[in-house]
């Protein structure tokens, strides 16, 4: 017993100061894209991004954060005018909200007031991995560790859909997980929410050309929160969850 106490003392207090303080992310972290100053009439990024994340609308580049994998060797801009900032607050309420045209990004504003009232102090989630690689799952799991301590925000992952207020979906939703996902969704009592975490769950990510479905979760069920990234940084996910519940602005 004394060893347990001594070790506990040595390990110290490790829970982060988030959300009171902003997290310090590594310099090389790739968050919100930075772009602009494109040559006139250049539309090359529409074809060079293998995941179709870039579009040019009225000579304005739009980067779809739901398709972007934040690649370190991003091939999208042959002129080298696309890079990444360390801005991690990227979650959006609507699919359309992920279409970023530069300037200030508007992250999620949260659920409607009635749902915020219902779930704001206690949100139980069921997690379904539908073709995920275990990257998104691992960085969702990590929110349960004492660094993030998800429980202090009243959010918890539960072992049955019957105990849940919503699902957090990872993975592109491949053919073999489609019915299990729909069954899980159906088993959750109303009203319920759906969170799509990671590029796969939002758009199919690197698997959007697969023959096994893989076009993301919003084709099947309505989504209340989109969390971009491959995988999303745990703070991106946590920030998104808190915004959804109206605990962060």
């Amino acid at each position: 017993m004394i060893q347990v106490l001594l070790e506990r003392y040595r390990q110290g207090f490790r829970t982060g100061a988030f959300p009171r303080l902003e997290p310090v992310l590594p310099e090389r972290f790739r968050g919100l894209p930075i772009f602009g100053g494109c040559p006139a009439n250049c539309r090359e990024c529409e074809t060079t991004c293998p995941f179709g994340a870039c579009q040019v609308v009225d000579s304005q580049v739009i980067v779809d954060l739901g398709r972007c994998l934040f690649c370190a060797d991003c091939p999208a801009c042959v002129h080298g005018r696309l890079s990444f900032s360390t801005e991690y607050r990227l979650a959006a309420d609507r699919r359309e909200g992920l279409r970023y045209g530069g300037g200030t990004y508007s992250p999620a504003e949260g659920l409607e007031p009635k749902l915020k009232k219902l779930f704001g102090r206690s949100l139980k989630l069921r997690q379904v991995s539908a073709g995920g690689c275990n990257g998104c799952e691992a960085d969702c799991n990590v929110l349960g560790t004492l660094v993030f301590d998800l429980g202090r925000f009243g959010i918890q992952f539960v072992a049955s859909p019957r105990h849940a207020d919503g699902i957090l979906v990872t993975g592109p939703v491949n053919e073999n997980m489609r019915s299990a996902l729909l069954d899980t969704y159906a088993a959750i009592p109303e009203p319920k929410i759906v969170i799509a975490s990671g590029a796969c769950a939002i758009s199919g990510g690197p698997y959007q050309e697969s023959t096994e479905g893989c076009r993301g979760v919003s084709e099947l069920v309505p989504v209340d929160l989109f969390v971009p990234g491959c995988p999303p940084h745990p703070y991106t996910l946590l920030d998104g969850l808190l915004r959804m519940l109206g605990k962060r602005k």
Binding site: T48, D73, C133, N134, N176, P206
Partner: peptide, 26 residues
């Protein structure tokens, strides 16, 4: 979790190949 990954690599390497390899097991 089957995503038909090996067949997506056929005819490659494609531009999407590195991202698919990196997510074989994340």
């Amino acid at each position: 979790q089957h995503r038909d990954l090996e067949r997506m690599l056929l005819g490659g390497p494609h531009p999407a190949t590195p991202s698919q390899i990196e997510t074989i097991g994340g």
